[in-house]
Design a protein around this nucleic acid. Structure first.
Lengths: 235, 235
DNA sequence: AAGTGGTCTAGACCACCCC
DNA sequence: GGGTGGTCTAGACCACTTG
């Protein structure tokens, strides 16, 4: 754990917000004060603050000071989170059921999405995710077998993201998602326990590690019942 | 036009990419070379490059160099663009038809979204946007009358964003969007020329200026025929 | 070993806000 | 005028990649 100073400072301040030691609208110490407080240069403080500002944790106003962002803006908007973290944070009961788990070969379309060669082995996993025993999300996930030689159903029954980051020590960087609307056909309706014709959000996403490697492609169906997508589009 | 140096340098390099003088995978000059080329300090160069990196224009690899991003990644993913710009960029024929235009008063729900007082005057505009005379997007837009006292149907028939930025000199900062799926009811189906039950993407968005003022709230319906949403979710 | 980007320092001047 | 954040400089050391 050798984080650079500016990241340590950023997560330190983030911690103060998370633990309610700093609340909406509160004025942060000035950059000069933070300099002596952390005993670093101003550039380092500013880099830490820049990071927090980009995540909308704080607002910097020239000539006045730096404030904790009070707007109800969900900062989670664009964060990529695992299902478990996500739902826990909302205080709901999560669970997950693996419907299918097999090793197969990538066809042309999948190979292109994962940036691998055709016919390379991939795990194909179908999972149903439930909240309070209500089916909510149907996931079709494809992961290159080369990256995860010991992948098992057990792992997919817990948190996929925890496995990748904690057990494998890989760093997830981002996911690229395409969102479209789709109506439930008979099979989707049965699985997700809705009526045929019910509106679903379909998200196709490619997950990338920090070195640019694609670690998964997945097609997920969400009922609009408990989910929506929050996007912040910067001009 | 008094842009800081780092932004000038960033847009200068962006320009080289736009005009194809630099192409996918090309190696940029080293930071040291850029320093003497632009006669600025390394920090300034790095700030310019950091900006381009965040927009995925370039990729910086420690120990190797800085490259033009070659991946097919649409950098437009999260950009907020007006309909006209957007469609022109795709080489299609755009048009727009104002179905309704009236001055009304904000109810509680709308007032909250626009961060104004209840009963403040707002323009309520319904527009149908067409591509090659095909209806594609239905827009319900609400704009505070205080911000745009001279708003007219003519303006809404051209580009709303151009009006705000060019004519009014206001700077649009971002929009916060919530995406859900919805099926077309009779009215939506008639307007958008699809069948009842057709899947639509509904986007509710709040537009903010650089000073944090909300300048519009809108609810837009997209047919999934020609549109999808591209999202890049950073971990 | 040489070169790259990643981090960091200790200064400086400016534009802006508020008293 | 005094304080804030915004920009910029000229150094420095490090980790990493490559010959």
């Amino acid at each position: 754990m050798k984080l650079p100073k500016y990241k340590q400072i950023a997560s330190d301040i983030q911690g103060l917000v998370d633990t309610q030691k700093l609340g909406a609208g509160d004025l942060l110490p000035t950059e000069k004060e933070l300099m002596s407080q952390y005993d670093v240069s101003r550039v380092t403080i500013r880099k830490a603050l820049a990071e927090l500002e980009s995540q909308e944790v704080i607002v910097r106003i020239s000539g006045k000071g730096t404030y904790i962002n009070g707007s109800k803006a969900r900062r989670n908007a664009l964060e990529l989170k695992g299902f478990l973290e996500d739902i826990h944070a909302q205080g709901k009961q999560p669970s997950s059921r693996v419907l299918d788990f097999k090793l197969t070969m990538a066809d042309a379309s999948l190979a292109q999405k994962l940036s691998i060669e055709i016919n390379m082995p991939v795990y194909a996993i179908t999972r149903l995710r439930l909240i309070n025993d209500e089916p909510e999300i149907l996931e079709h996930t494809f992961m290159p077998a080369m990256l995860f030689p010991e992948l098992s159903i057990d792992i997919m029954n817990t948190s996929k993201y925890e496995y990748i980051e904690k057990d494998k020590g890989l760093k997830i960087a981002l996911s690229r998602e395409t969102v479209v609307a789709e109506v439930a056909d008979q099979q989707l309706a049965d699985t997700l326990n809705v009526e045929v014709g019910y509106p679903l959000i379909k998200v196709m996403s490619i997950g990338e590690l920090e070195d640019g490697t694609c670690f998964e492609y997945s097609e997920n169906y969400f009922t609009s019942k408990q989910f929506s997508f929050e996007i912040m589009a910067r001009r």
